[in-house]
């Protein structure tokens, strides 16, 4: 057990350190240790914030994914397959148009409201779908996201904000600098919040009847879960942009090995989410060095492949 923890700690430290020293600006360990001022600036203003941002985003997205899977009772649901991400992007767009002078925090709150409404609409639609066909759920969610996305596209086009919208749509860590990412630490707090209600979320995942039987306020826990999901999504879309599939792949990968009891699984999900996103981001920085491939593209390619694998692997019982 101790060995596992040590290995886990060492591997994320290696990844994190790698992330610190990969990039266009000259930064090497010896130079940094020699106390070059320029090197210190790159480290503190760019590399460190970026690496933190990647880990925070990856783990928060993975956690949010598993919360949605519990709330929707479907393991193919996550913010991009439930319209939540698109709703958040629409919210930021609307906030930017209606109150362009407001702070990022205010815009993010509007986005939270939008993604909350989006997820709520999604859950309402789910009530009309048969539980016997679990694939219908992500299908409907992706469509809903598409419709919301096209509304956002329409508004953005008319308001001449397509450029901004595409920044939010395509998740990318290359713009992360000190002073521009700190809000992501909020997702850390929200993840802790999710951990505090881990048992309740697991019970919610067992269905309404069992939840009621165990004396849970089903609606309150569902709402709490959705609020966490919406806030995290809004923060990530506002600071990094949309990143698909992390919330779907990581929980489905982790539960193969450790199951769905969130009290146990949640830290592991967060850990794996952080690590894999770091890996993707480092790969994105290395593949066409000194240029970058945005992380959303890397995750889009690998994540969609993994998703298809998940789908077709179980096609015998669909």
């Amino acid at each position: 057990m101790l060995l596992k923890y040590t290995l886990a700690l060492i591997s994320i430290l290696i990844l994190f350190t790698t992330s610190l020293f990969v990039g266009v600006g000259e930064l090497n360990i010896s130079g940094y240790l020699n106390g070059s001022h320029e090197q210190e600036l790159i480290m503190l203003a760019s590399r460190l914030p970026r690496s933190f941002a990647v880990v925070l985003t990856g783990s928060a997205l993975a956690i949010v994914g598993v919360i949605m899977q519990k709330v929707a009772h479907n393991k193919f649901v996550e913010p991009t397959t439930a319209g939540t991400m698109d709703s958040a992007a629409l919210g930021i767009l609307v906030a930017s148009i209606l109150m362009p002078q407001s702070s990022l925090m205010a815009k993010m709150l509007v986005a939270t409201g939008f993604s909350l409404v989006g997820s709520w609409v999604f859950l309402r639609i789910l009530k009309h779908l048969p539980i016997t066909n679990p694939l219908l759920v992500p299908l409907v969610g992706i469509m809903l996201g598409g419709v919301i996305g096209s509304v956002a596209g329409f508004i953005a086009y008319e308001a001449d904000l397509i450029q901004y919208l595409s920044i939010w749509i395509s998740g990318d860590f290359s713009g992360i600098l000190r002073g521009r990412y700190e809000m992501l630490w909020l997702t850390f707090g929200l993840s802790i919040g999710a951990y505090l209600i881990a048992d309740q979320l697991t019970i919610i995942g067992m269905g309404k009847n069992i939840s009621l039987n165990l004396g849970l306020n089903y609606r309150a826990i569902t709402s709490l879960g959705l609020i966490i999901v919406s806030m995290v999504t809004a923060i990530i879309v506002a600071t990094v942009g949309m990143i698909p599939f992390i919330g779907l792949i990581i929980p489905n990968l982790v539960n193969r090995f450790v199951g769905d009891d969130l009290r146990q699984a949640l830290p592991i999900i967060a850990y794996v989410g952080g690590c894999l996103t770091l890996l993707c981001d480092i790969a994105g920085r290395l593949i066409i060095f000194p240029y970058e491939v945005p992380v959303s593209t890397i995750v889009g390619v690998t994540g969609s492949l993994a998703f298809i694998f998940l789908l077709l692997k179980r096609d015998t019982n669909v």
Binding site: F76, N133, L139, V293, G300, V301, I308, L311
Partner: peptide, 25 residues
Amino acid sequence: SVYLLALTGIILGIFFRSLVNFIFR
């Protein structure tokens, strides 16, 4: 099932688009 196909197709679409994006980069 048709739903499995539709979902697979949509994800394949995302896969191809991401890959195109990647190649262009």
